[in-house]
């Protein structure tokens, strides 16, 4: 059982890393790029458990540690 967690900066939060990547992509000849925002992708291998239980646990992990909800949003898939 595996959880895939995506942590992204909230809208309106400045992302200097994204800006730097965006500029680099412009220099590489991709002028059509409007914005780049960087986030984190986290894979969690879980012992088998009921799906709902796994979702609850992963949501809790996100709120407690994986994301800082002052500046970040999270979403995840469990499969």
């Amino acid at each position: 059982m595996k959880a895939k967690v995506y942590v992204t900066l909230k809208d309106g939060i400045l992302d200097p890393q994204g800006k730097a990547v965006q500029q680099s992509l412009h220099h590489l000849g991709y002028p059509a790029i409007k914005e780049v925002r960087l986030g984190k992708y986290i894979e969690i291998e879980l012992s088998p458990m009921p799906l709902e239980e796994a979702k609850r646990a992963v949501a809790e992990m996100c709120r407690k540690l994986l994301a800082n909800t002052v500046i970040e949003n999270f979403r995840f898939e469990v499969e």
């Binding site: 939060i13 400045l14 200097p16 890393q17 730097a20 800082n68 002052v70 500046i71």
Partner: peptide, 16 residues
Amino acid sequence: LEAGLLPGAMLRNRSL
């Protein structure tokens, strides 16, 4: 900040 003993969060310096 992370512990919630103070409010807010830190971002990367704007200059990176």
